[in-house]
Amino acid sequence: MSKRRPYVRSKSGWWKKDPYYVEYMVHESTALFVAAYAIVLTIGTVCLAAGEAAWNGYLEAMKSPLSIIFHLILLAAIVYHAFTWFKLFPLTTPPVVLGGKKLEPELIVRGGWVVAVGVAVVSFVIVWGLA
C-alpha cells in the first residue's frame, strides 16, 4: 500500500503574504473606483434626460463637500490605475521590435505615461475651448 499522502496547503490570505501580491490587489481594486465613476456618469445621463431641474440637482450634489472628497479619492485611484496600467505593458503586450532590436521595457512604460499625460492635456484644452 502506498504511504503517499500529499499535503495541500491552504491558499487563504495569500494576497497578504508578499508585498508583490499586496500591490497587485491594490491595483486590481482600482476597478471598484472605475465602476463607481461609471455609475456617477450614468446617474448624470439619467438626470440630464429627466430635464433641467434634475440636472441642476445633479450639479448641486456634485458640489457637496462629500462629493468633492469622493471625487478626489476617485481621481487618486484612477491615476493609480493609469500608472499601473502602463507599468504592466511589458508584461501584457508583445515586445515592440524596432530595427531588429527589442525596445527597452522602461521606454514602453514611460511612453505610455507620456501619452496618458498628453491625452489628458489635450482633452482638457478641448473641454476648455467648448466651455
Binding site: Y20, Y21, Y24, E28, L88, L91
Partner: peptide, 9 residues
C-alpha cells in the same frame, strides 16, 4: 491568468 506578473519576476 490575472496578470500578477510575479512569475516573470
Amino acid at each position: 491568468c490575472g496578470a500578477t506578473g510575479y512569475c516573470s519576476e
